[in-house]
């Protein structure tokens, strides 16, 4: 498991914030694993996202894309309950049932940069932890940038 800072990871575990029903009732959002989507030679990106048994968390819960574009996500429900996935996409969000022990693929198109949330929008899966982030990195095209000198960033 990878988190942003080891100290934070230790604190999450110490107080039970990264598991179900220890510190709080569910688990805090975006406390799961981080992974980068694979990119084909055609620029099309692919990733596999699983639901961890009894943890109500996506694995990875933070999916990195190097740029905006086309993405296929194969969702795998390893849990013993039914969930689903609602994933933002230009044109219309994509939605798939994920009954116990099933695999389903969604195809989405996202702009970059910025980040988007996806979730299992049934029951209170979202509140318990089944909200994940798709983080699109990179910059907008040069044609869309302001005509000015480079400016300082935070």
């Amino acid at each position: 498991m990878t988190t942003v800072t080891p100290d934070r990871s230790e604190m999450m575990r110490k107080f039970g914030l990264d598991r179900q029903n220890v510190g709080t009732l569910g688990r805090l959002l975006a406390t799961g694993n981080i992974a980068q989507a694979e990119e084909g030679t055609d620029g099309h990106m692919r990733a596999v996202v699983r639901i961890v048994p009894d943890q109500l968390v996506w694995d990875p819960s933070i999916l990195l894309l190097s740029h905006g574009g086309e993405l296929d996500i194969e969702f795998v429900n390893d849990d013993q309950n039914t969930h689903c996935a609602l994933v933002p996409s230009n044109g219309d969000s994509q939605w798939v049932w994920l009954p116990n022990y099933t695999r389903g693929t969604v195809h989405v198109t996202l702009d970059g940069p910025g980040h988007y949330w996806f979730s299992s929008n049934i029951g209170n899966d979202e509140g318990r932890g089944l909200i994940g982030a798709i983080v699109v990195m990179g910059d907008v095209p040069a044609s869309a940038r302001l005509d000015r000198p480079p400016q300082p960033r935070p």
Binding site: S93, W95, V106
Partner: peptide
Amino acid sequence: YRPAPPAVNF
């Protein structure tokens, strides 16, 4: 594992 029902436009 079985195939999930196909994804749809929301």
